[in-house]
Amino acid sequence: MSFVLDCPNCGSREVTDFGFGGEVTTRPTGRPEFKELNRYVYFRDNKAGVQREWWVHRAGCGEWFLAERDTRTNEVIWTARPADAPPARAAAASEGAPR
């Protein structure tokens, strides 16, 4: 695994410069039931395909940012600061995407 990522502040760096923060999840609002809490804490989509995820430039500027990456090929489609990120594709999330 030796791909490169574009840090929004610093530009292109080897993937080893970064820390991976996992896929973007939706935090429950209000007090969740035990089952919903369990889902939020333990379950992930773990998609074989384009995934929206968190990265941090731990060896450089230290900023957290978002990316979309194809987990099958490691092709990084875009990286952006959270405020500048394109809106999530809501369709894929709710339309019964294969688990």
Binding site: C10, S12, R13, E14, T16, A59, G60
Partner: peptide, 24 residues
């Protein structure tokens, strides 16, 4: 592993990134 070639890193260039496998 930073790209410090003349064209990529002119004088006054500043690059946060890994140096000897540590943040720098």
């Amino acid at each position: 592993a930073l790209d410090l070639r003349e064209g990529s890193m002119p004088v006054r260039g500043f690059r946060p990134g890994s140096v000897a496998r540590t943040p720098g």
